[in-house]
Amino acid sequence: MGITKNKKMLIKGAGKFMAKIPNRDELITIGTLNNMLLDIQLDMQDIEGGDSSVPLDALLRKKTIDITAQDAKFDLNLVRLVLGSKLREGVSGASYRLVTETVTVPGESPYQVLLTEAAATSPAIKAYEDVITGTDVTTGVTVTGNKAVFETALAGKKVVIVYPVALSGVQQDDDGFVWELEEKHVIQEVNGKCEAELVFGTSLYTTPEISVRTLTGNKLLKQLSNGTPTEEQYLVEGGKLIFNAALKDVAIYVNYKRNEVVDVLDISSRDLPLTVHLVHDGRFEQKDGSVQGYQTELYQCRVKSNFTIDAQRQQASTHSVTLTVIDPERFDNKLGTIKRYEVATASANN
């Protein structure tokens, strides 16, 4: 008697799901499935003839195979499957990050200190005496690599240095930013200036497009390029917003763009959904202690239905996508396969 693996099994979960772009190494894996549905639809048409009320035969007009995967975690690759656009990984609006470091200058020559990290050549470093809001002493500090050299006048003093550090593996791109929304501040007086220091002020985008409104009256304040701001204006000074003295202790909220290392998926009017090779695998322990599995492989599929991100208050969101089989035009007319197997004990937990 031949070996058979097709004994009945209990399916106790959703299994794993993978989509592979044909002839490429790129894989899209939905690793946290909530639900997986394989739907095979047959469109049959009766063939009738004579006086009989019973069809003579049936004609298969169409065979439709749909597979729906529901994921518990958001994955940008799943959106890419629907949109078909290219995913750009590790891009940023700036190829550097700013580091703020406080050092004490030696009281005797040589007046130099080793910094924690090596500084990039651009943008230029900034240095302040004692605190970051102190006197600007940038002209008295020279930074090369991770070595900071100071003028004699700064001997024995505490100096705050703000310097750029190159980001490894990051590509500079105009889309390398995120919006910071509704960041709340209370305008405070510091060294005679009424100001609010942005949380990500050291990484403002080239054109941050800052929007400032008062929290109580929802009054929009206008940005001033230079000069002294009025009660309805503000200045951008580094990573700080400078206001008129009349706005002291006023609560505001700020929206602005800042640099961030991001993965970007473009939403284009011309891209089509990806055509992919699908594999679904499920393996489950049975009552007799064995681990039984089944695997569905579909050679060519394309997205059929909508993809929805359903974000709700105090509720975890799931994301689902439905794909339908299209003819891969193979010489053997196969659309895919469904396999049954038994897993060896040593690999059952993989």
Results as ranks from 00 to 15, higher is better:
5 K>C: 15
17 F>A: 09
17 F>Q: 05
22 P>V: 08
36 M>W: 00
40 I>H: 09
40 I>N: 10
46 D>H: 02
48 E>K: 13
51 D>Q: 09
52 S>R: 10
52 S>M: 11
53 S>M: 09
55 P>M: 07
57 D>V: 02
64 T>H: 00
69 A>R: 04
71 D>W: 03
79 V>G: 01
84 G>Y: 05
86 K>L: 09
93 G>H: 05
94 A>H: 14
94 A>N: 13
98 L>W: 03
100 T>Y: 03
107 G>L: 13
110 P>R: 15
110 P>K: 14
113 V>S: 04
120 A>R: 05
122 S>T: 15
127 A>C: 13
131 V>M: 02
134 G>S: 08
138 T>S: 10
140 G>V: 02
147 K>M: 09
154 L>E: 08
155 A>K: 11
158 K>W: 03
159 V>E: 14
159 V>Q: 13
167 L>P: 05
167 L>A: 08
173 D>S: 05
179 W>Y: 13
183 E>C: 03
184 K>L: 05
185 H>K: 08
186 V>T: 14
188 Q>N: 11
191 N>H: 08
192 G>N: 06
194 C>E: 11
196 A>N: 11
197 E>Q: 15
201 G>W: 07
207 T>C: 01
222 K>D: 14
225 S>R: 11
228 T>L: 10
232 E>L: 08
243 F>V: 02
248 K>A: 10
250 V>N: 04
252 I>N: 10
255 N>E: 09
258 R>G: 07
269 S>Q: 13
277 H>D: 14
279 V>I: 09
279 V>F: 01
280 H>M: 02
280 H>R: 03
285 E>V: 13
287 K>D: 15
287 K>I: 11
287 K>H: 12
292 Q>G: 07
298 L>C: 04
299 Y>T: 03
302 R>P: 00
302 R>L: 00
303 V>I: 00
307 F>W: 02
309 I>R: 12
317 S>T: 15
319 H>I: 08
321 V>T: 04
322 T>H: 00
328 P>T: 07
331 F>I: 12
333 N>L: 12
333 N>H: 12
334 K>H: 05
339 K>P: 03
342 E>R: 07
345 T>W: 01
